[in-house]
Design a protein around this nucleic acid. Structure first.
Length: 359
DNA sequence: TATCCGTGGGG
DNA sequence: TCCCCAAGGAT
C-alpha cells in the first residue's frame, strides 16, 4: 500500500513499558553497582551509588564507588569509620555535604534499622541525604517495589514522549504524574533503570538517537521533529565572579600550612590553605592584610581559576618559605607535602597547590 | 519557591 | 570560548 498525503497519518500509539523493558534486556549497561540479571541487588551498593550519582556522571563515580567499597565494604564498616576518612575518600567528587550525610545515614541505618536498609519509601526518605528521588530509586532498584522514580533522565524522556510544553521545574508535578502512569507493576526496578539507561544513551540532551529508541513511535516530540527542544527550561543567570587570595606557606622541612573549613556551606568540612574571604570586590593588592602569618610573601604569577555551580572564582596565590620552628597559627596545622594526598583537599585547593609547586 | 552546593566533559 | 549538563537534597 502506498502512503497517501490525503489519508490521515497513523495515530501515535500509547507508550508501552514492555517495549522499554525488552530494549533494556538487550541493551542494559553493565555498571559496578548494578546486579546482573537474576542476581539479588545489594541495598548498600544501590544506596551508595545513588548518593554518589546525585548530579554526578557515571564516569566520575565509578572509581570512587570501587574505592569506597574497598574501604567500607558494608554499611557497618562505613558507620564505624572516622568522619575524616569518609571526607578524604570523597575528596574530588564534589557536593561535600553528601559525604557528611552519607556517614550520618550509615549510622542511622545501623542504629535505627539494625543495619538493614528499609524497603519503604517513607522510611528511606527519613534518612539523611535521601530525598524523594533517591528513596524511590532504592525502593525500586534494591527491593523491586513499585515507585515513581523521576530523575533528570526521566524528566527528559517523559517531557519528550508527551511533548510537555511547561518548563521545568514548574513541570515537575506533571512529569511525575505522567511517569506514574507509565510505571508498570511488573519489574519496576528494571523499568526505572531502563528509563535512566535510555536517557543516558539514546534520549540524550543533544542529538538524541531517536531511530534506535524503543519509544520512537509513541514519542510526541519526535513526531514533531523537536525532540531536542525538550525539556523546556528557564535558564538562570550566572553568578557574579568573585576574587580572593590563597596563601601557601612552606616550612623549610617540607610542610604546608592547612586548615579545615567550617562544617557547613561551601566546601564544608574540607581542607584548604589559608586564604581571604571571596568577594566580587576583593582587591588582591590588599592581600597581605589577610596573610595567616608574618612572612616574606610573594605573589605567584597568574591566578587560579575555578568555576563553582553558582559563581566563578579567581584566586591570587601568595607563597612564602618560613623557618622550621614557625608555629601554626590558631586553627591551622602543618602537613608534610608527602601526606598531602591523605588530606580531604577539594580540587580547587589541589589547583592552588599545583599552581605553586607544579604537578 | 529559590538558592546553595563541585566537578569534569561534551558540543 | 562558553554554556550546558549529570541517577538531587537541604534549607
Amino acid at each position: 500500500m502506498v502512503a497517501s498525503p490525503d489519508r490521515p497519518r497513523k495515530p501515535r500509539p500509547t507508550p508501552d513499558p514492555g517495549d522499554l523493558l525488552d530494549w533494556y534486556d538487550r541493551n542494559r549497561r553493565v555498571l559496578p553497582w548494578r546486579a546482573a540479571p537474576g542476581e539479588t541487588p545489594d541495598p548498600y551498593r544501590v544506596w551508595l551509588s545513588e548518593i554518589m550519582l546525585q548530579q554526578t556522571t557515571v564516569r566520575a563515580v565509578k572509581p570512587y564507588f570501587e574505592r569506597f567499597l574497598g574501604l567500607f565494604p558494608t554499611v557497618h564498616a562505613l558507620a564505624e569509620a572516622e568522619s575524616e576518612a569518609v571526607m578524604r575518600a570523597w575528596a574530588g567528587l564534589g557536593y561535600y555535604f553528601r559525604a557528611r550525610n552519607l556517614h550520618a545515614c550509615a549510622k542511622a541505618v545501623v542504629e535505627r534499622f539494625g543495619g538493614r536498609f528499609p524497603a519503604e519509601e517513607e522510611a528511606l526518605r527519613s534518612l539523611p541525604g535521601v530525598g524523594p528521588y533517591t528513596a524511590a530509586a532504592i525502593a525500586a532498584i534494591a527491593f523491586d517495589r513499585r515507585a515513581v522514580v523521576v530523575d533528570g533522565n526521566v524528566e527528559r524522556v517523559v517531557t519528550r514522549l508527551f511533548a510537555v510544553e511547561e518548563a521545568l521545574p514548574r513541570a515537575k508535578p506533571v512529569v511525575r504524574a505522567l511517569t506514574d502512569g507509565l510505571t508498570p507493576a511488573r519489574r519496576p526496578g528494571d523499568f526505572a533503570q531502563a528509563m535512566m539507561d535510555l536517557g543516558a544513551t539514546i534520549c540524550s540532551p543533544r542529538a538524541p538517537a531517536c531511530g534506535l529508541c524503543p519509544f520512537r513511535e509513541p514519542c510526541a516530540a519526535r513526531e514533531a521533529g523537536a525532540a531536542e527542544t525538550y525539556p523546556r527550561k528557564e535558564r538562570k543567570a550566572a553568578g557574579a565572579p568573585r576574587r580572593g587570595a590563597a596563601f601557601v606557606a612552606l616550612r623549610e622541612d617540607g610542610a604546608i600550612l592547612l586548615r579545615t573549613r567550617p562544617p557547613k556551606g561551601l566546601l564544608g568540612g574540607m581542607a584548604e590553605v589559608p586564604g581571604s574571604a571571596w568577594a566580587a570586590d576583593y582587591d588582591p593588592r590588599d592581600a597581605l592584610r589577610d596573610a595567616p602569618l608574618a612572612a616574606p610573601w610573594r605573589v605567584a604569577p597568574g591566578v587560579v581559576e575555578h568555576v563553582f555551580t553558582h559563581f566563578p572564582l579567581s584566586l591570587t596565590v601568595l607563597v612564602a618559605a618560613v623557618p622550621e620552628e614557625t608555629p601554626a597559627p590558631e586553627g591551622a596545622r602543618w602537613t608534610r607535602l608527602e601526606k598531602l594526598g591523605e588530606e580531604a583537599l577539594p580540587n580547587l585547593m589541589r589547583k592552588v597547590v599545583a599552581h605553586v609547586l607544579g604537578g
